[in-house]
C-alpha cells in the first residue's frame, strides 16, 4: 500500500525463496496445507480488491471460486481434456464473460444491496449446480483426476502434489504481483478514491460505475483462477463451494490477516488453513471456533492480526527508543 516496487519485490523474493525450499524441511501434509493456503490466498486477495480497494463488501465471492473449480471438473469429465493450462485458459475466458455480466448488474448498488445481491447470485449458482444433476452430479459433486502440468503426466498423487506445489507457487507469485501492480496503478488509486469519496470522484471526471465494474471483473477472474487451482488439489468439487457459509470463509481470511494491507488477505488465508486444520483435529465444532476468533478480532484487532501485530511492534519500538 505505501510500499514502493523495490520493497515489494524484496518481500516477494524472500517469500518465494522460503516457500520454494520449505518442502525439503516439512512433511508432505504440510506442503499440501501451504499449497491450499496459497490457493485461498489468491482467492482472498481477489476478494480484497473489491473490499479494501473499491469499498464493496461482497458476500458472494464463493461463486467465482466454485466457477473455476467446476470449469475444471466439467472440462475434464465432459471434454476429456487433461491439460491444466487448458483449464486455466478456459477459466479465464468464462469468468471474464460471466463477471462482466454479473458485475454489470451488481455494481450499480452499494453496501447492503451489493452484499445481498452478490450473495443472491452465489446461492443462485448453488441452486443451479444442485438442480442440473445430470450435468453437474448435483450434491455428489465431481471427482477430479490428476491433470497434466505443462504437458507432464503423473502416475501417482504424491509425485503430482510435489510438482503441483511449485506450479501453484509460481502462479501465486504471479497473481500477487499483477494484483499489486494494478492496485498501485492510476486505476487502482482511482478505485481507492472512489471508495473514499465517490461524490468527489465524479467531480474529477472518474467514471465510477465503469471502474467498479472493472474491479468486479478483476476480482471475479482471479477468484475463478484460484478455484481452478483448487480442483486438482482437492480432487473433488461440490456445490458447497458456493454455499453462503463458504462466502464467510474468504471474509474471515481477510479479516484475520488484515484488509488494509495488500498482503494481509494472503497471510490470513494461510493462517486460516492451519487454524482450520488444527481446530478440526481438536473438535468438529469448527464454526464455533471460527466465530469466536472473528469476534475476538473484531473487538480487539479490528485492523486484522498482521496489521495489529505490526502496530504493536512499531509501538513497542517507539517506546523503547523514546520517540
Amino acid at each position: 500500500m505505501g510500499m514502493n516496487i523495490k520493497t515489494f519485490s524484496l518481500y516477494l523474493l524472500v517469500c518465494g525463496i522460503i516457500f520454494a525450499i520449505a518442502p525439503f524441511f516439512i512433511s508432505s501434509y504440510y506442503v499440501y496445507l501451504i499449497a491450499l493456503g496459497m490457493v485461498y490466498g489468491i482467492w482472498a486477495l481477489s476478494w480484497n480488491v473489491l473490499f479494501n480497494y473499491t469499498g464493496l463488501l461482497s458476500f458472494g465471492h464463493a461463486l467465482w471460486f466454485a466457477l473455476g473449480a467446476y470449469v475444471v471438473g466439467l472440462t475434464q469429465e465432459r471434454l476429456m481434456i487433461m491439460s491444466m493450462e487448458c483449464y486455466l485458459g478456459l477459466t479465464l475466458v468464462v469468468s471474464f464473460i460471466l463477471s462482466l455480466a454479473v458485475g454489470y448488474l451488481c455494481v450499480r448498488y452499494t453496501q447492503i444491496y451489493f452484499a445481498l445481491l452478490t450473495q443472491g447470485f452465489s446461492m443462485l449458482f448453488y441452486a443451479m449446480l444442485v438442480k442440473f444433476y445430470s450435468f453437474t452430479h448435483g450434491t455428489d459433486g465431481i471427482s477430479v483426476k490428476v491433470p497434466a502440468l505443462l504437458g507432464m503426466q503423473f502416475t501417482n498423487v504424491e509425485s503430482f502434489l510435489r510438482a503441483y506445489y511449485y506450479y501453484i507457487l509460481l502462479i501465486f507469485l504471479l497473481c500477487a504481483t499483477i494484483l499489486w501492480i494494478m492496485m498501485n496503478s492510476p486505476f487502482g488509486k482511482s478505485l481507492q478514491f472512489i471508495r473514499d469519496n465517490s461524490l468527489r470522484a465524479r467531480f474529477i471526471g472518474i467514471p465510477i460505475i465503469k471502474y467498479r465494474l472493472w474491479s468486479f471483473v478483476i476480482a471475479g477472474v482471479f477468484g475463478a483462477i484460484s478455484g481452478a487451482l483448487f480442483a486438482p488439489l482437492n480432487r473433488q468439487v461440490c456445490p458447497e463451494l458456493t454455499y453462503w457459509s463458504s462466502n464467510g470463509n474468504v471474509v474471515f481470511m481477510t479479516l484475520l490477516g488484515g484488509f488494509s494491507v495488500f498482503a494481509g488477505s494472503a497471510i490470513g488465508a494461510i493462517i486460516f488453513v492451519f487454524l482450520q486444520n488444527i481446530a478440526l483435529t481438536l473438535t468438529i465444532y469448527w464454526q464455533l471456533i471460527a466465530g469466536i476468533v472473528i469476534v475476538v478480532i473484531v473487538y480487539l484487532f479490528p485492523k486484522g492480526l498482521t496489521v495489529s501485530i505490526k502496530d504493536m511492534v512499531v509501538g513497542m519500538y517507539k517506546k523503547v527508543h523514546g520517540r
Binding site: 457459509s245 466465530g291 472473528i294
Partner: peptide, 28 residues
C-alpha cells in the same frame, strides 16, 4: 454496542460470526 461507532462492515462481520457460533452451539 461497542461496534456502533465503527464501520458498518464490522457489525456485519460480527453478526456473521455470531451466526457461526450459534449454529455450532445448537449442535453442541
Amino acid at each position: 454496542k461497542p461496534l456502533y461507532k465503527r464501520r458498518q462492515e464490522y457489525q456485519l462481520l460480527f453478526t456473521f460470526a455470531l451466526s457461526f457460533i450459534f449454529e455450532d452451539l445448537i449442535k453442541l
